[in-house]
């Protein structure tokens, strides 16, 4: 604090007086304040998650106080309160969640890859439109996307059935087909953002080298471009998988009566207010998502593409 309260600064021909305000003095301690604040925010971010995991091992049937320590919410075979591993409804939901996440990611990644190539490598006049549509889809309230998709699917299926006499668009009626279509649309913009960033940082000289050495464009793409952007594709696929796997709102509107993914199952349980069983299921689901991410991070260092 040896700095003077006021000081003169020689700025060319101009002389200016800079005064240290009260705020400047207070801000001398800002580093400590910011560090403390950040610690609190990190606790804020992780406290609920830790509490949830902890409370999946409580004996309290209401799940509100912590009486250690039981595994019964995971392993119980009592038919009135089946543990996670014996709950067939839960396993069915997990299966459907995986199906939705894997299939929609597989479709979206192909469409997204081709789209990001077009947007990043070529100049054509509708480019801005597709860009804008993607960004709109990303930020728009999910409830609107969900509702409008439901309306459109039912209307289109009805219209085709009434005008042709055949239920040609049956797959678009609320159910698995509709969920998959909606999830692909939900995933594409996120995939495109990641892949475009990857393509931007891509040194095209290696593609030219491939072409100069006599490779055809398809060979250059398969042997040079694709391997080079593979980590980006993996990161994009992972993000898409997780978005799909955890998605609630979009699925909620187009699921019909046949599809119950894990988030939908958890939603119905939350509304019925069942105790630590939800904590156990949630912990199970988080462990599942986290496990995949940690595995891929260790294997492929995907974080470089995501940050």
């Amino acid at each position: 604090m040896s700095e003077p309260m006021t000081m003169d600064i020689q700025g060319g021909a101009r002389r200016e007086r800079v005064r240290f305000s009260l705020w400047d003095k207070i801000m001398q301690f800002s580093d400590v304040g910011i560090l403390a604040w950040s610690v609190i925010v990190y606790i804020f971010l992780y406290l609920p998650i830790f509490v949830l995991i902890l409370f999946s091992f409580t004996k309290d049937p209401l799940g509100l106080t912590f009486h250690p320590f039981t595994l019964k919410w995971y392993t119980s075979s009592d038919p009135n309160a089946l543990g996670v591993i014996h709950d067939s409804g839960l396993l069915h939901a997990l299966q459907q969640s995986l199906e939705v996440a894997i299939v929609s990611t597989a479709i979206a990644i192909v469409i997204g890859l081709s789209g990001s190539f077009a947007l990043e490598r070529f100049r054509f006049h509708t480019r801005g439109l597709w860009d804008g549509l993607n960004y709109t889809k990303m930020v728009i309230a999910e409830v609107i996307a969900g509702v409008s998709t439901l309306l459109f699917f039912v209307q289109a299926a009805d219209w085709v059935q009434n005008s042709t006499g055949y239920n040609l668009l049956a797959f678009m009626r609320p159910g698995m087909g509709a969920v998959l279509i909606a999830h692909v649309a939900w995933n594409i913009p996120f995939i495109v953002v990641i892949l475009r960033a990857r393509l931007k940082g891509f040194d095209r000289a290696i593609e030219e080298a491939g072409a100069d050495l006599g490779a055809r464009p398809a060979t250059v793409f398969l042997k040079v471009t694709l391997p080079a952007i593979a980590p980006g594709i993996l990161a994009a696929a992972l993000l898409s998988f997780t978005l799909s796997f955890d998605d609630f709102v979009t699925t909620f509107f187009v699921n019909g009566t046949t599809v119950t993914t894990l988030p939908l199952l958890i939603w119905s349980m939350v509304k019925r207010n069942v105790g630590p069983e939800i904590n156990a299921i949630s912990t199970f689901m988080m462990a599942f998502s986290m496990g995949i991410i940690v595995f891929l991070e260790l294997k492929a260092r995907i974080s470089e593409d995501l940050v």
Partner: peptide, 17 residues
């Protein structure tokens, strides 16, 4: 090539969004 490559995405986003 640009419009061709973008067409699957364009179709999906127009038709389903």
């Amino acid at each position: 090539a640009g419009p061709v490559l973008v067409s699957p995405m364009a179709f999906w986003m127009v038709a389903f969004f």
